[in-house]
Design a protein around this nucleic acid. Sequence first.
DNA 1: CGCTTATGTGGAGCACTGATCCGAATAAGT
DNA 2: ACTTATTCGGATCAGTGCTCCACATAAGCG
Lengths: 195, 195
Amino acid sequence: MRADARKNRDHLLAVAGTAVSEQGVDVSLRDIARRADVGLATLLRHFPTREALLDALLRTSFDEMTATAGELEASSSPEDALVTWLRDCVAWTTEYRGVTVLMAAAIEDTGSALHASCVTLRAAGARLLTRAQAVGAARADLDGTDLFALVAALAWLSDQPSLAPRADHLFDVVTSAILTRPVSAGTGGAPPPGP
Amino acid sequence: MRADARKNRDHLLAVAGTAVSEQGVDVSLRDIARRADVGLATLLRHFPTREALLDALLRTSFDEMTATAGELEASSSPEDALVTWLRDCVAWTTEYRGVTVLMAAAIEDTGSALHASCVTLRAAGARLLTRAQAVGAARADLDGTDLFALVAALAWLSDQPSLAPRADHLFDVVTSAILTRPVSAGTGGAPPPGP
DNA sequence: CGCTTATGTGGAGCACTGATCCGAATAAGT
DNA sequence: ACTTATTCGGATCAGTGCTCCACATAAGCG
């Protein structure tokens, strides 16, 4: 790749990052190009579609979430690992408004640029879920898709300005449905008092 | 209102109804006008914005949901009334793809045409919730907004083609989090076997 | 260093969107 | 039958994502 092309690509990606976190994934591509002092056609050459741009933008974060799942699997109890990871996933999506809809669409559209990342993410969650189910900490009638759907739904909730204020609370509510034992809210250290 | 205007209005509403249930709330207004053999300007006179059109289209359904809540309050146990109504709400939204996003936006936008209907709907749900809480059948730490948010999230799930297959199951999962006692799935008649 | 060529660029244009204007058509009232 | 107030809809505008192609330019070579 030519040096000027590389520079433009990197610059566009940086500008797109701030634009998306400011205005959400539906931000005008023309605006991004304008803010990067570049023609619209140039943006669309490097990223032929909005999805391709978002893929380049989100891939790193996707990989981080997957990696985090692996670390939690090694370092925490099955229950804590699952809950912590779910919370991280929901928190992450709030950085890019509207990304949940894209993810939900991409996970079954094998042609989508985001498809592979979504599938990997779902698999990472499924592993944490299975581990929790093995020790009886999570409902047995859930699978990876269910978990993916619940995270997406909670993330969507956080995306809606009118519902976001209750999102944290509703996260706890939904989590209590996933887990088979009552979860200690917050830092999760204190053992429950005896009966 | 002049007779021809009334006729056009009714016809447009009917065409819009089928168009929206076929293609979702983002259907092109031009398409609706075309299918109604009417100029785009005519559609936009009767319904100056897409929201106004959807308001006219959905108001009846909104009122029905509110009325249903009242009937259930009189005829069923607090627990059954709540669950049945929630199920009805989610089922209803599937008829109009994308309506949940509009509702979530309208409930805090007092200027929106749909605002009043959304608030009424939330209040109806809140009454059913309070009644269930009074007999200890529902979690005490939920309010009307929480219920509205959970219904919206479940409806949103049903809207996503990739997640819809699990929507019914996830409805049960979320419901189990709202209720304090295990709910008997399905028709809800059989008592649980003794330990 | 100068030239050639392969590559990258971006303005002009396409089809589409929701929305607005205003001259023409038409129903209602006398 | 005529007047008038209302309604209609084609033309138009600014916006969108996207494509084409003449032009500028960086890279490679004599």
